[in-house]
């Protein structure tokens, strides 16, 4: 990491501003649209900076294959996929080790807010397609997934939104973009609930001291609200 940087990314922070003009604790611009896929029970399209994701919910519906059914609650199936054309180098279609792991953590991130026990024996399928990737795809997918679930009328106790906080050129920065993710030192995706700001997803790779870690959590907590606002607004606009 950080090696072989092209000249234009030699410095990622100039005068406390990042290359895309943001301050260190500023989110990228966010745009969310609800109900974009008519055949789905719930759907959402989201853009966060240059990352673009489509989310669709099918269900609650009959569980298939049947042996995966849970007698006491619904099963949430999450499938995260980077579409082949979403990055500069073509992504091979189909599940990869990376996408399998992300599907798992995304499922955990959303399960905690859904009243799954309302739908025993049924399945809720959430499909997350990354159509353009520019860092933060799992976080963006979670933010979109929560909106699509709400649009599908799945009872939830809270919304969930996610972003990442990282370290670039030795400084903590919120919501890394592509070059910052590629040439930065640390990346920590986090998902939080809208009601209590509790954490439902936490991953990290890179290097943080104990103090940096504490500060990083604080930055997310204090700066994530615009994502929840965008989620609520998108849902309200749909029913206007």
């Amino acid at each position: 990491m950080g090696s072989d940087r092209p000249k234009k990314y030699e410095k990622l922070i100039i005068n406390n501003k990042r290359l895309d003009g943001r301050t260190l604790d500023e989110l990228r611009p966010v745009k969310i649209e609800v109900g974009v896929i008519p055949s789905a029970d719930g759907s959402a399209y989201i853009e966060i900076g240059n990352t673009k994701v489509l989310a669709a919910v099918h269900g609650p519906k009959e569980m298939f294959p049947k042996h995966q059914m849970n007698e006491n609650r619904a099963v949430l199936n999450v499938r995260y996929a980077m579409l082949p054309f979403s990055t500069t180098e073509r992504v091979r279609p189909g599940p990869s080790r990376r996408s399998n792991e992300i599907s798992k953590v995304t499922r955990h991130a959303l399960e905690s807010v859904i009243f799954l026990e309302e739908f025993p024996r049924l399945a809720i399928n959430l499909t997350l397609d990354i159509i353009q990737a520019d860092a933060g795809t799992r976080a963006t997918a979670i933010t979109a997934g929560a909106v699509a679930l709400a649009h599908a009328g799945i009872p939830m106790k809270s919304l969930v939104a996610a972003t990442a906080v990282g370290k670039i050129d030795g400084k903590l920065a919120l919501d890394l973009n592509g070059p910052e993710d590629n040439f930065g030192e640390t990346d920590m995706p986090i998902a939080m609930t809208s009601t209590d700001k509790n954490i439902t997803l936490l991953q990290m790779d890179g290097d943080f001291t104990k103090e940096e870690f504490k500060k990083a959590l604080g930055i997310v907590k204090n700066s994530i609200e615009p994502l929840f606002e965008a989620q609520r607004k998108a849902l309200q606009d749909y029913y206007k």
Partner: peptide, 13 residues
């Protein structure tokens, strides 16, 4: 220092 983290499980922390 911390170099990797992973949360799992369907509960909030």
């Amino acid at each position: 220092n911390y170099c990797a983290m992973q949360q799992a499980g369907s509960h909030e922390t």
